[in-house]
């Protein structure tokens, strides 16, 4: 049986028609093409599918999409604004809070939901909260360091990912000027 749903994802309204038994994870990934949310264990243990639903952290692999009618959903895709990373995203790069990156969207959403509620958690509170998000690569030390860097305001204020903004200026114009110059020589 199909069901009409109104979802608000990252501030944008969507009207979708899905089978009544579809999970939020499936609707985000397969219907809305928001594949940043990942499936890890399918039973709500690993946290890879974490999203924020009306301000609460949930496992989207256990959440029926039909129950999200009219609710506000935040996913990893909504964090970076105008090409500028969210402080948590920046910290995860600066402090190496990921290796393969499959659990990273979930880790970042979990951390965000904690910091939204309590911007100054202790290290112990972060550890306790983040223990619902499994990672097989990092051993967690650098995830903890990344989150604490945001808590303690230790991220680089002049951050630019691999200096893309500066190198982007070289671009093709310069190349073709050079072509023009070469051929006119």
């Amino acid at each position: 049986m199909k069901k009409q749903l109104n979802l608000n994802v990252n501030g944008q309204d969507y009207e979708v028609e899905v089978e009544a038994n579809r999970l939020l994870l499936q609707v985000l990934r397969d219907t809305l093409d928001l594949t940043g949310t990942k499936e890890g264990c399918s039973i709500g243990v690993c946290g890879a599918c974490s999203v924020i639903l009306d301000g609460r952290l949930v496992s989207s692999c256990l959440t029926l999409a039909a129950g999200c009618e009219g609710k506000k959903i935040e996913t990893i895709e909504g964090l970076a604004k105008d090409g500028k990373l969210h402080p948590l995203q920046q910290a995860f790069i600066e402090y190496g809070g990921f290796q393969c990156g499959i659990c990273t969207p979930g880790q970042i959403m979990a951390a965000k939901s904690l910091l939204d509620e309590n911007p100054k958690p202790s290290e112990e509170e972060v550890k306790e909260w983040m223990s619902g998000n499994l990672c097989r690569c990092t051993g967690y030390y650098k995830i903890l360091e990344s989150v604490m860097a945001v808590v303690d305001g230790k991220t680089d204020p002049n951050y630019a990912f691999r200096k893309r903004e500066t190198t982007a200026k070289i671009q093709s114009l310069d190349v073709y000027k050079s072509v023009a110059k070469t051929s006119s020589d």
Partner: peptide, 14 residues
């Protein structure tokens, strides 16, 4: 910084 960093933290890695 990790070369794939941006894609990994934005969920854009395929």
């Amino acid at each position: 910084q990790r070369v794939e960093g941006f894609d990994k933290v934005t969920g854009d890695s395929k």
